[in-house]
Protein backbone atom coordinates (compact mmCIF):
# COMPACT_ATOMS: atom_id res chain seq x y z
CA UNK A 1 0.00 0.00 0.00
CA UNK A 2 1.42 3.38 -0.91
CA UNK A 3 0.96 6.14 1.56
CA UNK A 4 0.10 9.40 -0.20
CA UNK A 5 3.03 11.75 0.09
CA UNK A 6 5.57 8.96 0.32
CA UNK A 7 5.83 6.36 -2.39
CA UNK A 8 7.95 3.33 -1.58
CA UNK A 9 11.42 3.03 -3.01
CA UNK A 10 11.29 -0.73 -3.10
CA UNK A 11 8.86 -3.23 -4.49
CA UNK A 12 8.19 -5.99 -2.02
CA UNK A 13 10.81 -7.58 0.18
CA UNK A 14 10.23 -10.86 -1.69
CA UNK A 15 11.76 -11.34 -5.16
CA UNK A 16 9.21 -10.95 -7.93
CA UNK A 17 8.87 -13.07 -11.02
CA UNK A 18 7.02 -10.78 -13.37
CA UNK A 19 6.44 -7.01 -13.36
CA UNK A 20 4.96 -4.45 -15.70
CA UNK A 21 6.90 -1.21 -16.06
CA UNK A 22 5.24 1.92 -17.42
CA UNK A 23 7.15 4.89 -18.83
CA UNK A 24 6.02 8.51 -19.20
CA UNK A 25 2.24 8.89 -18.92
CA UNK A 26 2.12 12.50 -20.17
CA UNK A 27 -1.47 12.86 -18.92
CA UNK A 28 -2.67 10.03 -21.16
CA UNK A 29 -5.10 8.62 -18.59
CA UNK A 30 -6.92 6.63 -21.27
CA UNK A 31 -3.77 4.65 -22.10
CA UNK A 32 -2.83 4.30 -18.44
CA UNK A 33 -6.20 2.78 -17.56
CA UNK A 34 -5.89 0.40 -20.52
CA UNK A 35 -2.34 -0.54 -19.55
CA UNK A 36 -3.29 -1.36 -15.97
CA UNK A 37 -6.06 -3.61 -17.20
CA UNK A 38 -3.83 -5.21 -19.82
CA UNK A 39 -1.02 -5.90 -17.37
CA UNK A 40 -3.42 -7.40 -14.84
CA UNK A 41 -4.84 -9.68 -17.51
CA UNK A 42 -1.31 -10.87 -18.24
CA UNK A 43 -0.91 -11.82 -14.60
CA UNK A 44 1.91 -9.53 -13.54
CA UNK A 45 2.73 -9.54 -9.84
CA UNK A 46 3.41 -5.81 -9.62
CA UNK A 47 3.37 -2.66 -11.68
CA UNK A 48 5.51 0.42 -11.45
CA UNK A 49 5.75 3.71 -13.24
CA UNK A 50 8.99 5.53 -14.05
CA UNK A 51 7.61 9.05 -13.93
CA UNK A 52 6.52 12.03 -16.05
CA UNK A 53 2.84 11.83 -15.21
CA UNK A 54 1.99 15.15 -16.83
CA UNK A 55 2.74 16.99 -20.10
CA UNK A 56 1.32 16.81 -23.58
CA UNK A 57 -2.11 15.33 -22.80
CA UNK A 58 -5.35 16.64 -21.25
CA UNK A 59 -6.56 16.97 -17.65
CA UNK A 60 -3.47 15.86 -15.72
CA UNK A 61 -5.43 15.20 -12.52
CA UNK A 62 -7.14 12.17 -14.07
CA UNK A 63 -3.94 10.15 -13.93
CA UNK A 64 -3.50 10.24 -10.16
CA UNK A 65 -6.49 8.22 -8.95
CA UNK A 66 -5.61 5.44 -11.41
CA UNK A 67 -2.16 5.11 -9.93
CA UNK A 68 -3.36 5.32 -6.35
CA UNK A 69 -6.15 2.79 -6.83
CA UNK A 70 -3.80 0.29 -8.44
CA UNK A 71 -1.11 0.99 -5.82
CA UNK A 72 1.51 1.71 -8.43
CA UNK A 73 4.70 3.25 -7.07
CA UNK A 74 6.10 6.07 -9.15
CA UNK A 75 9.66 7.27 -9.70
CA UNK A 76 10.10 11.03 -9.92
CA UNK A 77 10.38 12.18 -13.54
CA UNK A 78 11.73 15.55 -14.59
CA UNK A 79 8.18 16.72 -15.23
CA UNK A 80 6.96 15.59 -11.82
CA UNK A 81 9.95 17.27 -10.24
CA UNK A 82 9.32 20.57 -12.01
CA UNK A 83 5.55 20.59 -11.42
CA UNK A 84 5.74 19.56 -7.78
CA UNK A 85 8.42 22.12 -7.01
CA UNK A 86 6.81 24.85 -9.10
CA UNK A 87 9.84 25.31 -11.37
CA UNK A 88 9.50 27.55 -14.40
CA UNK A 89 9.81 24.78 -17.00
CA UNK A 90 10.00 21.03 -17.62
CA UNK A 91 13.81 20.84 -17.81
CA UNK A 92 13.75 19.06 -21.12
CA UNK A 93 16.21 21.69 -22.27
CA UNK A 94 14.91 22.53 -25.74
CA UNK A 95 16.79 25.31 -27.48
CA UNK A 96 14.84 25.41 -30.73
CA UNK A 97 12.31 28.24 -30.47
CA UNK A 98 9.49 26.11 -31.90
CA UNK A 99 10.17 23.20 -29.53
CA UNK A 100 10.39 25.63 -26.69
CA UNK A 101 7.05 27.19 -27.58
CA UNK A 102 5.25 23.84 -27.38
CA UNK A 103 7.15 22.70 -24.32
CA UNK A 104 6.17 25.86 -22.46
CA UNK A 105 2.61 25.69 -23.57
CA UNK A 106 2.10 22.18 -22.32
CA UNK A 107 4.03 22.83 -19.14
CA UNK A 108 1.85 25.80 -18.27
CA UNK A 109 -1.30 23.88 -19.07
CA UNK A 110 -0.22 20.94 -16.93
CA UNK A 111 0.93 23.12 -14.09
CA UNK A 112 -2.30 25.09 -13.85
CA UNK A 113 -4.42 21.94 -14.09
CA UNK A 114 -2.66 19.85 -11.45
CA UNK A 115 -4.22 20.14 -8.00
CA UNK A 116 -2.13 21.16 -4.98
CA UNK A 117 -2.84 17.73 -3.41
CA UNK A 118 -1.47 15.91 -6.43
CA UNK A 119 1.53 18.19 -6.58
CA UNK A 120 2.20 17.39 -2.96
CA UNK A 121 1.85 13.66 -3.64
CA UNK A 122 4.39 13.91 -6.45
CA UNK A 123 6.84 15.70 -4.21
CA UNK A 124 7.15 12.42 -2.30
CA UNK A 125 8.20 10.38 -5.32
CA UNK A 126 11.61 8.72 -4.95
CA UNK A 127 14.45 9.18 -7.43
CA UNK A 128 14.76 5.45 -7.93
CA UNK A 129 13.09 2.16 -7.12
CA UNK A 130 15.02 -1.04 -6.52
CA UNK A 131 13.63 -4.54 -6.48
CA UNK A 132 14.63 -8.13 -7.03
CA UNK A 133 13.33 -9.99 -10.02
CA UNK A 134 14.20 -13.66 -9.81
CA UNK A 135 17.85 -13.51 -8.84
CA UNK A 136 18.47 -10.13 -10.47
CA UNK A 137 18.82 -6.69 -8.90
CA UNK A 138 16.70 -4.25 -10.86
CA UNK A 139 17.07 -0.48 -10.67
CA UNK A 140 14.22 1.66 -11.97
CA UNK A 141 14.80 5.38 -12.63
CA UNK A 142 13.53 8.08 -14.96
CA UNK A 143 16.26 9.21 -17.40
CA UNK A 144 19.42 7.63 -16.11
CA UNK A 145 20.49 6.55 -12.62
CA UNK A 146 22.77 9.59 -12.43
CA UNK A 147 20.58 12.26 -13.96
CA UNK A 148 16.83 12.48 -14.05
CA UNK A 149 16.64 14.24 -17.42
CA UNK A 150 19.39 12.35 -19.23
CA UNK A 151 18.31 10.92 -22.57
CA UNK A 152 19.45 7.37 -23.28
CA UNK A 153 18.68 6.72 -26.94
CA UNK A 154 19.49 3.45 -28.59
CA UNK A 155 21.72 4.99 -31.26
CA UNK A 156 23.46 7.38 -28.89
CA UNK A 157 24.29 5.21 -25.90
CA UNK A 158 27.42 3.06 -26.00
CA UNK A 159 27.32 -0.35 -24.38
CA UNK A 160 30.44 0.41 -22.32
CA UNK A 161 28.69 3.50 -20.94
CA UNK A 162 25.69 1.44 -19.79
CA UNK A 163 27.96 -1.20 -18.32
CA UNK A 164 29.67 1.49 -16.25
CA UNK A 165 26.32 2.85 -15.05
CA UNK A 166 25.18 -0.63 -14.05
CA UNK A 167 28.39 -1.25 -12.16
CA UNK A 168 28.43 2.14 -10.41
CA UNK A 169 24.81 1.82 -9.41
CA UNK A 170 25.10 -1.83 -8.40
CA UNK A 171 22.33 -3.25 -10.56
CA UNK A 172 21.99 -6.13 -12.99
CA UNK A 173 19.10 -4.55 -14.83
CA UNK A 174 18.74 -0.82 -15.52
CA UNK A 175 15.21 0.28 -16.39
CA UNK A 176 14.37 3.80 -17.55
CA UNK A 177 12.11 5.93 -19.76
CA UNK A 178 12.25 9.71 -20.57
CA UNK A 179 12.98 9.39 -24.30
CA UNK A 180 9.60 7.97 -25.31
CA UNK A 181 11.02 5.22 -27.53
CA UNK A 182 11.41 1.69 -26.16
CA UNK A 183 14.56 -0.36 -26.70
CA UNK A 184 16.73 -2.83 -24.85
CA UNK A 185 20.30 -4.02 -24.90
CA UNK A 186 22.00 -6.95 -23.30
CA UNK A 187 25.21 -5.71 -21.64
CA UNK A 188 26.55 -9.06 -20.53
CA UNK A 189 25.13 -12.50 -19.82
CA UNK A 190 23.07 -11.21 -16.88
CA UNK A 191 23.11 -7.48 -17.29
CA UNK A 192 20.63 -5.39 -19.26
CA UNK A 193 19.46 -1.90 -20.03
CA UNK A 194 15.76 -1.56 -20.81
CA UNK A 195 13.97 1.59 -21.92
CA UNK A 196 10.28 0.86 -21.43
CA UNK A 197 9.10 3.59 -23.81
CA UNK A 198 6.08 5.69 -22.91
CA UNK A 199 2.36 5.26 -22.37
CA UNK A 200 1.75 8.91 -23.07
CA UNK A 201 2.30 9.03 -26.79
CA UNK A 202 3.19 6.65 -29.61
CA UNK A 203 6.81 5.79 -30.39
CA UNK A 204 7.22 7.92 -33.55
CA UNK A 205 6.70 4.83 -35.67
CA UNK A 206 3.46 5.63 -37.48
CA UNK A 207 1.41 3.36 -35.19
CA UNK A 208 -1.15 4.67 -32.74
CA UNK A 209 -0.35 2.09 -30.06
CA UNK A 210 1.73 3.10 -27.05
CA UNK A 211 4.23 0.82 -25.34
CA UNK A 212 5.14 -0.58 -21.99
CA UNK A 213 7.39 -3.43 -20.86
CA UNK A 214 6.91 -6.68 -18.99
CA UNK A 215 10.01 -8.02 -17.27
CA UNK A 216 10.23 -11.65 -16.21
CA UNK A 217 13.05 -13.52 -14.60
CA UNK A 218 13.56 -16.86 -13.05
CA UNK A 219 16.94 -17.17 -11.42
CA UNK A 220 19.26 -14.91 -13.42
CA UNK A 221 17.80 -14.93 -16.93
CA UNK A 222 15.83 -11.86 -17.86
CA UNK A 223 13.10 -11.84 -20.44
CA UNK A 224 11.89 -8.48 -21.75
CA UNK A 225 8.60 -8.16 -23.58
CA UNK A 226 7.57 -4.86 -25.13
CA UNK A 227 3.81 -4.64 -25.26
CA UNK A 228 2.11 -2.52 -27.94
CA UNK A 229 -1.04 -1.22 -26.33
CA UNK A 230 -4.03 -0.28 -28.42
CA UNK A 231 -6.34 2.08 -26.53
CA UNK A 232 -9.12 4.50 -27.38
CA UNK A 233 -6.76 7.11 -28.82
CA UNK A 234 -9.62 8.85 -30.60
CA UNK A 235 -11.22 9.55 -27.22
CA UNK A 236 -7.96 11.04 -26.00
CA UNK A 237 -7.59 13.11 -29.16
CA UNK A 238 -11.12 14.37 -28.71
CA UNK A 239 -10.47 15.34 -25.12
CA UNK A 240 -7.27 17.12 -26.13
CA UNK A 241 -9.22 19.11 -28.71
CA UNK A 242 -11.81 20.04 -26.08
CA UNK A 243 -9.01 21.28 -23.86
CA UNK A 244 -7.71 23.32 -26.81
CA UNK A 245 -4.32 21.66 -26.79
CA UNK A 246 -2.19 22.23 -29.92
CA UNK A 247 -3.31 20.44 -33.05
CA UNK A 248 0.30 19.22 -33.47
CA UNK A 249 -0.03 17.17 -30.27
CA UNK A 250 -3.35 15.74 -31.35
CA UNK A 251 -1.87 14.77 -34.71
CA UNK A 252 0.79 12.72 -32.90
CA UNK A 253 -1.88 10.78 -31.02
CA UNK A 254 -3.84 10.19 -34.23
CA UNK A 255 -0.93 9.31 -36.53
CA UNK A 256 1.84 7.89 -34.38
CA UNK A 257 4.37 10.46 -35.67
CA UNK A 258 6.05 13.02 -33.45
CA UNK A 259 5.53 16.56 -34.67
CA UNK A 260 7.31 18.68 -32.05
CA UNK A 261 10.33 18.53 -29.74
CA UNK A 262 12.29 16.64 -32.38
CA UNK A 263 15.51 18.44 -31.58
CA UNK A 264 16.44 15.86 -28.97
CA UNK A 265 16.39 12.90 -31.37
CA UNK A 266 19.72 11.51 -32.60
CA UNK A 267 20.21 10.90 -36.32
CA UNK A 268 18.98 7.31 -36.52
CA UNK A 269 15.84 7.81 -34.44
CA UNK A 270 15.07 11.05 -36.24
CA UNK A 271 15.47 9.46 -39.66
CA UNK A 272 12.92 6.76 -38.77
CA UNK A 273 10.23 9.35 -38.04
CA UNK A 274 8.30 11.39 -40.53
CA UNK A 275 9.23 14.91 -39.33
Amino acid sequence: MIAPGGAPGRLGPEPLGCVAVFGGVYSNHVALAAAIEDARARGVEAMLCLGDLGAFGPNPDKVFPLLRDAEIPVVRGNYDDSISRGLDDCRCGYTDPRDNYYARLSYQYTFSNTSPENRKWMSGFPDEIRFRLGGLDVLGFHGSPRQRNEFLWESATPTHFLTKLAREHRADVLVGTHTGIHWKRRLSSQSWYVNVGALGRPANDGRTEVWYAILRADVRQLEVEFVPLAYDHQALAHEMATEELPIEFIDTIRTGWWTTCLEILPAKERARGRF
Binding site: G9, R10, L11, G12, A46, L48, E71, S123, D127, E128
Partner: peptide, 14 residues
Amino acid sequence: MGVAAAPVVRRLPP
Protein backbone atom coordinates in the same frame (compact mmCIF):
# COMPACT_ATOMS: atom_id res chain seq x y z
CA MET B 1 -0.88 -6.81 -7.36
CA GLY B 2 -0.18 -5.59 -3.87
CA VAL B 3 2.96 -3.61 -3.38
CA ALA B 4 4.64 -3.70 -0.01
CA ALA B 5 6.04 -0.45 1.24
CA ALA B 6 9.60 -0.74 2.42
CA PRO B 7 11.07 2.60 1.56
CA VAL B 8 14.75 2.44 0.74
CA VAL B 9 14.81 5.70 -1.07
CA ARG B 10 17.46 8.13 -2.06
CA ARG B 11 15.77 11.48 -2.04
CA LEU B 12 17.30 14.84 -2.75
CA PRO B 13 16.55 17.76 -0.46
CA PRO B 14 14.16 20.29 -1.99
